[in-house]
C-alpha cells in the first residue's frame, strides 16, 4: 500500500538555501567556537561575586548606620533624662562591677550648663554602653 509515489518529498526549502548553507554554517560555527578570552570566561563569575560583595557591604553599612543611630538615640535619651533630673549642671554615670570592669563612675560637673552633645560624644568615646548604666544623677 505504501507506494513509491508517497516517497516523493513534499517539503520544500527557500530558494538557493543549500547553495549558501555551507558558507553560512561555517561562519556561524567558527564565530561561536572561537576561543573566548579569559576575561569573557570570568566575566559572569566576576559579576556574580561583585554583586554578592555589594549586597554584603550594603547590609553591613545599613546595620552599622541604623544600629549606631539607635544606640546613640537611646544614649541621647538617657542622658537628656539625666540632665533634666539634674537640672543640667552635672551628671554621674555609674556602672556595676562585673567581670569586664571594676565598676566605673564618671562625673560631669561644673558651674555652667553641660552641653548635651559634648556629653554624648564624651560617653561614646569611652564606649559607654547604655545597658551598663545603673544610674545617672547629679
Amino acid at each position: 500500500m505504501l507506494n513509491d509515489e508517497l516517497k516523493r518529498n513534499p517539503f520544500q526549502v527557500p530558494e538557493n538555501y543549500f547553495d549558501l548553507l555551507a558558507t553560512r554554517i561555517q561562519s556561524n560555527c567558527q564565530s561561536k567556537s572561537e576561543p573566548r578570552s579569559i576575561f569573557s570566561v570570568w566575566k559572569p563569575r566576576l559579576a556574580f561575586a561583585g554583586g554578592i560583595a555589594a549586597v554584603i557591604l550594603l547590609s553591613i553599612s545599613f546595620f552599622s548606620y541604623f544600629g549606631a543611630d539607635n544606640k546613640a538615640s537611646s544614649l541621647d535619651a538617657a542622658i537628656r533624662n539625666a540632665v533634666y533630673v539634674s537640672d543640667g549642671y552635672g551628671l554621674q554615670v555609674s556602672y556595676p562591677y562585673n567581670s569586664r570592669s571594676r565598676g566605673f563612675s564618671y562625673v560631669f560637673a561644673g558651674n555652667k550648663k553641660i552641653d548635651e552633645d559634648i556629653m554624648i560624644k564624651h560617653l561614646a568615646l569611652r564606649n559607654v554602653n547604655l545597658n551598663d548604666i545603673v544610674s545617672a544623677r547629679y
Binding site: E5, L6, R8, P10, F11, Q12, V13
Partner: peptide, 13 residues
C-alpha cells in the same frame, strides 16, 4: 508555506 504535497501526501505525512 514550504509544504507542497497533495491531499494524499498530506494524509500520509
Amino acid at each position: 508555506v514550504y509544504f507542497n504535497g497533495d491531499d494524499m501526501q498530506l494524509k500520509f505525512q
